[in-house]
């Protein structure tokens, strides 16, 4: 006849066995009466207890770990801050490695793109000008303003380094 309470009894038995092992009242396989499955699980309990004996951290280790944790945290904070400020200071544009070249290339492409976009605006419009408006005078100035602005931006970026 199968005992319907067996699973619950097994649970209780194993929990009690673990409690006794953890309390140091059992140090070996005192699982008499338990079936093979329970004996095997009791053996796992003993293995866990023996493989991880209580280990107290000494004061010096605690102090060292605390110091290292705070040092790592401060370093991480500085690195995080630096990466943001790098973006705003455009340091990547003048970095002494391949990133500098990528930065310059992107800048040149962006400026060339901008110039191509505004080129039609600069060159068209001579047919529909109304003589005597301020627009006509400005169009004469824009082709000089753009390269001048580019030169000024380049000079500013280089001055930063």
């Amino acid at each position: 006849m199968i005992n319907s309470n067996l699973p619950l009894n097994q649970d209780d038995w194993l929990a009690d066995f673990a409690d006794q092992v953890m309390a140091g009242r059992l140090a070996d396989m005192s699982a008499a009466g338990a079936d093979d499955e329970m004996q095997a699980l009791a053996n796992v309990v003993l293995r866990l207890k023996n493989a991880f004996p209580p280990e107290e951290l000494d004061a010096a280790t605690v102090k060292r770990m605390q110091r290292e944790t705070l040092t790592r945290w401060r370093k991480e904070q500085q690195t995080a801050k630096k990466s943001w400020t790098n973006i705003f200071h455009l340091d990547w544009l003048v970095a002494p490695n391949g990133r500098s070249q990528i930065g310059w290339s992107l800048t040149v492409i962006a400026l060339a793109g901008l110039f191509i976009l505004i080129l039609p605006v600069l060159t068209s419009g001579s047919n529909n000008n109304i003589i005597g408006t301020a627009g006509l005078q400005l169009r004469g100035v824009i082709p000089w303003v753009i390269p001048l602005a580019v030169i000024l931006v380049m000079a500013w970026l280089l001055r930063r380094k």
Binding site: P7, L8, Q10, D11, D12, L14, A15, A18, E37, A40, L41, V44, V45
Partner: peptide, 15 residues
């Protein structure tokens, strides 16, 4: 009861 049962099943899985 459920916790003890979970504990036994966990040990069985670990084994």
């Amino acid at each position: 009861e459920a916790t003890k049962s979970l504990f036994r099943r966990a040990l069985a899985a670990l084994r």
